[in-house]
Amino acid sequence: MELTVKLFATFRDGRFEKAQLDYPPGTTLANIVDALRIPRDEIGVMLVMGRHAELEHTPAPGDTVAIFPRIGGG
């Protein structure tokens, strides 16, 4: 299944801003971030079609997945 993956801030470094990627059916967000070598503990929030989703979530074909690093400073 094809997904649009958007990366934000430092997650783009050495990766990409936005890409159409092909994944096997049943791929979870955890599979996606692991394949991109994004450390799970650096993730702030993941949005699938504008909705918050957890690592276990399985996106549907054609979904857009946005992955943001955790930002905590003030």
């Binding site: 699938v48 504008g50 979904d63």
Partner: peptide
């Protein structure tokens, strides 16, 4: 932004 995708897909 919405709360959750729970159950979707």
């Amino acid at each position: 932004y919405g709360r959750s995708t729970a159950g979707r897909g």
